[in-house]
């Protein structure tokens, strides 16, 4: 479904991504972890073309992201993305947030979009919150609205960039639960997260990145059993003991 082949990317002289290669099968959940600045966010932003990359190929469902002829807005409309800081539109209510792209991109009618939004708000446990503005919602609620907003586009895959790292600890689980349910329903997911509990429960594979390289790309059991690289071992022991 998502294929990443020998991707290199530079910010000016600084190389953020070094020969990254991996693939995500349909229905697979891949967790990406690694130290700060290792290029995790950059990598998943390359997958939906939010960040351009200079070398290599990324395809989603056979469509090349880097190809100039690709209709990027159309491609992106099939790939949901959830951000660390939610990025709900503050001047729109939760329901309007969910409706906007349905109306403007998919061309759905107001009624259709509203009905779909209501359904998804129910699904993330916020059925009564549609009329609220983001500033009136807690962090956990905002992130769940953001997930509903992405799901409203009927995506074929979902990208998550540290969806819980801006949340107060007591709100992390309500978001992870929604994500776990999504995974159970068979959604293809790439999740940048340091929630190793979530990775253990939900992931099929774990990718470990360091300094722009994919150092480890292993099944969950391999990764949590005996990671091959020393850097991954160090990272794991650090993150699990704090």
């Amino acid at each position: 479904m998502i294929e990443i082949q020998h991707v290199n990317k530079w910010f000016g002289p600084f190389q953020v991504l070094k020969d990254c290669t991996s693939r995500v099968e349909k229905g697979e959940v891949v967790v990406i972890c690694g130290p700060s600045g290792s290029g995790k966010s950059t990598l998943i932003k390359c997958v939906n073309g939010l960040e351009p990359f200079q070398e290599g190929i990324i395809t989603v469902n056979g469509i090349s992201v880097g190809d100039k002829a690709t209709n990027l807005p159309k491609l992106r409309s099939h790939i949901g993305m959830v951000f660390q800081n939610f990025e709900l539109f503050p001047h729109k209510t939760a329901a309007e947030n969910i409706a906007l792209a349905q109306l403007k991109v998919l061309g759905r009618s107001e009624d259709e979009a509203r009905a779909r939004g209501k359904l998804l708000l129910d699904r993330v446990g916020l059925g009564e919150m549609g009329h609220k503005y983001p500033s009136e919602l807690s962090g956990g609620q905002q992130q769940r609205v953001a997930i509903a907003r992405a799901l409203a586009m009927d995506p074929i895959a979902m990208l998550f960039d540290e969806p819980t790292s801006a949340l107060d600890p007591e709100m992390i689980n309500e978001v992870l639960d929604v994500m776990q349910e999504l995974a159970r329903d068979g959604m293809t997911m790439m999740v940048v997260t340091h929630e190793m509990g979530f990775a253990r429960r939900v992931a099929d594979r774990v990718i470990f990145m360091d300094e722009g390289e994919i150092v480890e790309d292993a099944t969950k059991d391999e990764f949590f059993g005996t990671p091959r690289s020393e850097r991954a071992q160090q990272f794991l022991s650090k993150i699990l003991h704090h």
Partner: peptide, 17 residues
């Protein structure tokens, strides 16, 4: 913030939208 525009693009909106 750039994240607002990213969120728009990620939903499939064009630059003008």
């Amino acid at each position: 913030s750039r994240g607002q525009a990213w969120a728009g693009y990620a939903l499939g909106l064009r630059y003008s939208q």
